[in-house]
């Protein structure tokens, strides 16, 4: 009895901190292979590069915990960036552009939310369609070309501030802090867990679930807007092909961090570890002078291993 109990506790630690250990090992390997990997300059670059993924991963954590997987954020980033650039061009006001950009991210997310809540359509389908049409609109509006966006505030976002650390990193950190706060301390967070665990019981408890689902989508819209600003800032332009594949990185970050895909449980710390894992993998492999193709192989293998790891450690902790 006590032996199996300690085994269970051991496997719990393993599940909870295994990926963190893997992350540390991976950082060690990359450092050994490339002495410049673990320099402040590179860490700054790495974090800034991946800050849109980190921010979207915060929203994705809510989406997965509440069982509303969202494939659309990257396409919405492209579309809203393009809208921002156009409004900026037409009105000459960057501020209006930002407002329009955020209006798009929030409106599209809420539109998806309405289709899911009112239409009763599977979130996977709704956001898959959005994945296609939002990117398509972005390409259509621009004819496939990037639009340059020049603005001091925008440039400041990804300009080196302290050493190689830019404000974008601070924004990503803030996103995690606010995300963790909302998840753990507010009704929106509490109901995300409840929705993901048992929607019927949540409804029976008197929670207006439609309203809270829409709030979740709107919140995700805000985060996508922030990620869009950083993406545009990094490129100095709104590109219709921007952030391609970012949703995959964000979903993978949430899952390999150890948040179960079935929803109902999870936390921001796991997402942070998962997102850092992806960030280090992207940056470290890139720094080794690998081709994108080789990066993809290693990334794919690392992701599948991490998935297997979390699947089995969850099974271990669950078996009594």
């Amino acid at each position: 009895m006590s032996a199996s109990l300690s085994l269970r506790r051991y496997s719990q630690y393993f599940a909870e901190y295994g990926l963190l250990a893997a992350l540390v090992v991976m950082i060690g390997v990359f450092t050994a292979a490339n002495s410049r990997f673990l320099t402040l300059a590179n860490i700054g670059t790495l974090l800034e590069q991946e800050s849109p993924v980190l921010i979207v991963a915060v929203g994705m954590t809510f989406a997965i915990i509440s069982r509303n997987i969202d494939l659309a954020p990257a396409s919405i980033i492209a579309l809203s960036g393009v809208v921002l650039a156009f409004v900026n061009q037409w009105t000459g006001s960057f501020f209006l552009g930002v407002i329009a950009g955020f209006a798009v991210t929030i409106a599209v997310e809420v539109f998806n939310g309405l289709l899911i809540v009112r239409g009763g359509i599977n979130p996977l389908i709704v956001t898959l369609a959005c994945w296609i049409w939002a990117r398509g609109l972005a390409v259509s509006f621009t004819g496939g070309n990037s639009i340059v966006v020049q603005n001091n505030v925008l440039t400041f976002l990804t300009a080196p501030l302290l050493g190689n650390f830019s404000p974008a990193i601070l924004v990503a950190v803030l996103a995690f802090v606010i995300g963790a706060f909302i998840l753990n301390r507010t009704r929106l967070g509490r109901y995300s867990f409840a929705l993901g665990s048992d929607e019927r019981a949540t409804l029976q408890a008197g929670v207006p679930i439609g309203k809270y689902k829409l709030m979740l989508f709107a919140f995700f819209g805000v985060l996508v807007g922030v990620a869009m600003l950083i993406t545009v800032s990094r490129l100095g332009a709104a590109a219709p092909a921007a952030a391609y594949g970012l949703e995959l990185d964000a979903i993978v970050a949430v899952i390999i961090g150890g948040n179960p895909f079935q929803g109902g449980e999870g936390n921001m710390r796991r997402t942070l570890v998962g997102a850092l894992f992806i960030a280090v993998l992207n940056n470290g492999l890139g720094n080794l002078g690998m081709l994108d193709a080789q990066i993809a192989v290693y990334k794919g293998v690392a992701i599948i291993l991490a998935l297997l790891f979390s699947a089995f450690s969850q099974r271990l902790t669950r078996s009594k």
């Binding site: 867990f193 409840a194 665990s197 048992d198 019981a201 949540t202 029976q204 008197g206 109902g264």
Partner: peptide, 21 residues
């Protein structure tokens, strides 16, 4: 009609949590 992944306390007060924001 309990929500399986919430804690005992959270279940008892689900839908009528005390506090403001």
């Amino acid at each position: 009609s309990l929500v399986p992944k919430l804690s005992v306390a959270d279940n008892i007060f689900l839908g009528r949590e005390p506090g403001g924001l």
